[in-house]
Design a binder for these strands. Structure first.
Length: 113
DNA sequence: TTTATGACCTGAG
DNA sequence: ACTCAGGCCATAA
């Protein structure tokens, strides 16, 4: 049973998923980051869509703060209204147009020793 | 094989 | 700030 893309070796897929989950786990309270940033830091810069796929389908992701991942324009995930509530509970401010104030809350991964 | 559909991104108006 | 087109990549029909 294959649970990784044809374009990746099992090895690469494992590394990618680990990278994604590891980064999501590091997002601090009250901060957010984007699919594209995560993809790049996981070593696959053009695979933003796969990050979303991973978070959507990987059981691991549900025990992580995946509500702190939004798209580059600060939009929350479609069909997941609770995401906004969760973020607001952490103090994340939303603009009138339903976008996160990225200027204020964007977090980027750092090198961890 | 072609087309459509996503937890996406960028650039042009 | 908004829409639109084009690119992107995996999957399903």
């Amino acid at each position: 049973m294959k649970d990784y893309p044809d374009t990746m070796t099992p090895e690469q897929a494992r590394t990618f998923q680990e990278g994604v989950l590891n980064i999501v786990a590091q997002i601090p309270r009250g901060k957010v980051t984007t699919y594209g940033i995560i993809a790049a830091w996981a070593g696959w810069p053009s695979h933003a869509r796969m990050v979303g796929r991973t978070l959507r389908y990987s059981p691991e992701a549900h025990s992580l703060p995946c509500h702190r991942v939004v798209n580059v324009s600060g939009r929350t995930a479609p069909g997941w209204s609770a995401q906004r509530t969760l973020l607001e509970k952490e103090g994340v401010r939303f603009k009138p147009n339903c976008h996160v104030d990225m200027k204020r809350h964007l977090w980027e991964p750092e090198m961890n020793l």
